[in-house]
Design a protein around this nucleic acid. Structure first.
Length: 506
RNA sequence: GCCCCCAUCGUCUAGUGGCCUAGGACACCGCCCUUUCACGGCGGCGGCACCGGUUCGAAUCCGGUUGGGGGUACCA
């Protein structure tokens, strides 16, 4: 059996779109699942809309998500180059052969003329090209050229139904005459997507075309072009097509490029894990099992088959995406989590370094130790600064939320004073001879519990909330005693002392 | 206008004629756990668009209706 060859072939226009990424993901997963080849080609034939910046973003997106490709831009391969802007001679050659064989013809009609003919004949104006130039004589063509007109080349559509078996939708039939003869070049001779996409697929031996549903109705045209390419010996056969459901936004519309949620990098900036996004995107139109929806890319690859892809459009649901991401967050090993959090800490100005390895060892240790405390409390890495910021702030400058202060009762000061008295008797660390007196989470808990809950008869909630505010500045924080243990004895005590004397207190 | 696709809880989905008085997840609401917030556990809310057929039997098959979406470019 021939090797499966699939491709991802975006146009570099604008920022990477989550719908586009989902298409890339399914192609990648299918290639990996079948042991096939994943080709990454860039379709930059529209100079007016394409940009180098967008091309770079595409690479960035694919690499970030871990969607590696076997052939294509940057890595090369037997069918290089993989940017269509560098393949123009190939297109020119194919166009010539198509024209000589009579599969395409020169068309001089302007859109305005076509429309005028429809109107004159009492037809709706927007019917599409009418085949007017199909059988122009050489003399007529010469006359048009003499007027200064430059023709586009059109493919003759057959007067018969075009059918194919869609990998996700099953049999699809387009009625004869429903697609007009279509252009494959512009008037200046430059090739259009309608030519370059199927031609490159043929040239690159693509066996399975998995793409968005928006291209479903262009499939009969591509099949007809493919027949011509087969006739010319350029294509070995027609690929199998599979049309993936849309990714929808709010309302019932395709997720718009204008919507920030459509931008992959928007989600990365907020702190999505690539694992989380890959997992969530795979859920849009596919399911790994009836009762499970958290899985790794590897598990996706093992289970993925295009034939299992759903036909319905799927709405991008940020809440669900975040929940999936949170599940992956909890799976991260402490050091892994610590490393990933650093860029977000840096972005918030909490640390000067952008990279974990550049951090002072003391802070590396704090981060790794704090990771397990916060991993199940975070949905996105972007929450890390809020969650961990108090570790990095100077003791006398920990920001204290007004709301956190406001919730404290009138006895907060006395609670803090009692805490101080209890804490100061605690040693620096758990000594070999006196474990109960060490500055550890359990040591701190025991001594505080004895002083406040048992001693003063306070409810745990009332006893520990003032301390939490003193140490972290917030009403919500990582576990208090573990945080104090990590922060260290001196820093913890200084922070409590600071709050005690704060005039705003009670 | 014409062509094509689609239709299960609010959302993502499982379901390919009997295992379905329709399963899971997110969201939401209770309760439990608990030093906050979470995690976790338990429970609840909530759906086969409609009408006909086929069949002993239909969410599943067929036809239609309605409702969405896409295409109909010298964009991709």
């Amino acid at each position: 059996m021939a090797t499966t060859r699939v491709r991802f072939c975006p146009s570099p226009t604008g920022a990477p779109h989550v719908g586009m990424v989902r298409t890339a993901l399914f192609n990648w997963a299918y290639a990996r699942h079948t042991g096939g080849v994943f080709v990454f080609r860039v379709e930059d034939t529209d100079a007016a809309r394409d940009s180098e910046e967008s091309y770079l973003q595409l690479l960035d997106a694919m690499r970030w998500l871990g969607l590696d490709w076997d052939e294509g831009v940057e890595v090369g391969g037997p069918h290089a180059p993989y940017r269509q802007s560098q393949r123009m001679d190939l297109y020119d050659d194919a166009v010539l052969r198509l024209l000589r064989a009579g599969h395409v013809y020169e068309s001089f009609s302007t859109p305005e003329e076509v429309e005028a003919r429809h109107v004159a004949a009492g037809r709706p104006p927007k019917l599409g090209y009418d085949g007017f130039d199909r059988d122009l004589t050489a003399a007529q063509r010469a006359a048009y050229r003499a007027e200064g007109r430059r023709p586009v080349l059109r493919v003759r559509m057959p007067d018969e139904d075009v059918a194919f078996d869609d990998l996700v939708r099953g049999p699809v039939v387009f009625k004869a005459g429903s697609a007009p003869d279509f252009a494959i070049t512009r008037g200046d001779g430059s090739p259009l997507y309608t030519l370059t996409n199927p031609l490159d697929d043929a040239l690159m031996g693509i066996t399975h075309v998995l793409r968005g549903e928006d291209l479903l109705s262009s499939t009969p045209r591509q099949i007809v072009l493919y027949r011509a390419l087969i006739d010319l010996g350029i294509a070995a056969g027609t690929p199998r097509f599979g049309h993936l459901p849309y990714v929808m936004g709010e309302g019932n519309k395709k997720l718009s490029k204008r919507d920030p949620q459509s931008n992959l990098f928007h989600h990365r900036d907020r702190g999505f894990l690539p694992e989380g996004l890959v997992n969530y995107l795979a859920l849009l139109g596919w399911a790994i099992a009836p009762d499970r929806d958290v899985f790794t890319a590897q598990e996706l690859v093992e289970a993925f088959d295009v034939r299992d892809v759903n036909v319905n459009p799927a709405r991008f649901d940020l809440k669900k995406a975040e929940a999936i991401n949170a599940a992956h967050m909890r799976r991260l090993a402490p050091e892994d989590m610590a490393r990933r959090v650093v860029p977000y800490l840096h972005a918030s100005g909490l640390v000067a370094e952008t990279d974990f390895d550049a951090l002072p060892v003391r802070w590396q240790q704090v981060l790794v130790a704090a990771a397990p405390l916060v991993s199940q409390r975070m949905t996105l890495l972007g929450e890390a600064p809020g969650m961990l910021g108090f570790f990095f702030a100077p003791d006398d400058a920990v920001p204290i939320e007004p709301a956190a202060l406001a919730q404290l009762g009138p006895d907060a000061r006395s609670v803090l004073e009692a805490s101080l008295a209890a804490l100061t008797v605690l040693g620096d660390a758990a000594g070999p001879g006196g474990a109960e007196a060490g500055w550890t989470a359990s040591g701190i808990h025991d001594v505080l519990n004895a002083a406040l809950v048992e001693g003063l008869g306070l409810k745990p909630r009332n006893a520990f909330t003032p301390l939490r505010v003193a140490v972290t500045g917030r009403r919500v924080s990582p576990p208090l005693f573990e945080s104090m243990a990590l922060l260290g004895r001196d820093a913890s005590i200084r922070r409590v002392e600071r709050l005690v004397v704060l005039p705003e207190l009670g």
